[in-house]
Amino acid sequence: MLQFAAIILLMLGLYGLLTQRNVIKIIISLNILEIGLNLFIISVGYFEGGLAPIFTSETPANPNFVDPLPQALVLTAIVIGVGTTALGLALARKIYQKYGTLNLDEMGEN
């Protein structure tokens, strides 16, 4: 179920990128895209009844773990996503300083 939500989130992110004219909104759309993507990646490794891939004292002898690899990937992806978002926001500030607006349509330059 969450897999579908992830795909819808992806699509919504793309939709936002297409329709929004505000720099901040575009970054938000990017974030939504990334969240969708991360969910999707996790859902790829997940199957019903799987266990979190963490060894504890209660882990059964023959554990039925979900695939841990996607989770590792997502960790990396999240960090990278934050980096991009931060950079985008910094750029948004720069853009604001330069043009006095965050709306792409109101900037003279095209």
């Binding site: 793309l14 990128l17 297409l18 329709t19 575009i26 792409l104 330059e109 095209n110």
Partner: peptide, 13 residues
């Protein structure tokens, strides 16, 4: 090349 960020996205979609 209209310098709008959504152009790339549009073509991808």
């Amino acid at each position: 090349f209209t310098n709008k960020p959504e152009i790339t996205v549009f073509w991808i979609v």
